[in-house]
């Protein structure tokens, strides 16, 4: 069993980073590994917007993270500095995510066996 931390640096839909990270997290959990924390940075903070409304026949990237996190106790952390810069605040943050400091990313690096980055 391995403990994974995940860093997502790109926003949803424009870039595949969040999709790949999600599929990685799901596959790791299915193999019996643990995903402790997903940290959203740079445009990755947009993965937490409660206002996200994709077409009905498309995947809902935000809600998909929310569901996976709830089922497997994953800590979804959105960087406060990156979020405020881009208009993400508690008032439009999806339930299941939390806004906190960059220290949470460093902590994920310290506490995980592997910290895996998804982005450009």
């Amino acid at each position: 069993m391995m403990k994974f931390g995940i860093l997502i640096n790109e926003g949803p839909y424009t870039h595949q980073a969040s999709d790949t990270a999600y599929l990685f997290a799901k596959a790791a959990i299915e193999k019996g590994h643990k995903v402790n924390r997903v940290f959203f940075y740079h445009d990755g903070v947009y993965n937490s917007s409660r206002l996200t409304e994709p077409p009905q026949d498309d995947r809902h990237i935000v809600n998909r993270w929310q569901k996976l996190a709830k089922e497997h106790h994953i800590d979804l952390v959105v960087c406060v500095a990156a979020a405020l810069r881009r208009g993400i605040k508690d008032e439009n943050l999806q339930e299941g995510f939390r806004i906190s400091g960059l220290g949470q990313l460093i902590e994920a690096g310290i506490q995980s066996d592997r910290l895996v980055t998804f982005g450009d």
Binding site: V77, S100, G101, G103, Q104, I106, E107, I110
Partner: peptide, 10 residues
């Protein structure tokens, strides 16, 4: 505590 996101590291 602000720098570390409220978590106190050992």
């Amino acid at each position: 505590s602000e720098a570390t996101g409220g978590i106190h590291m050992e």
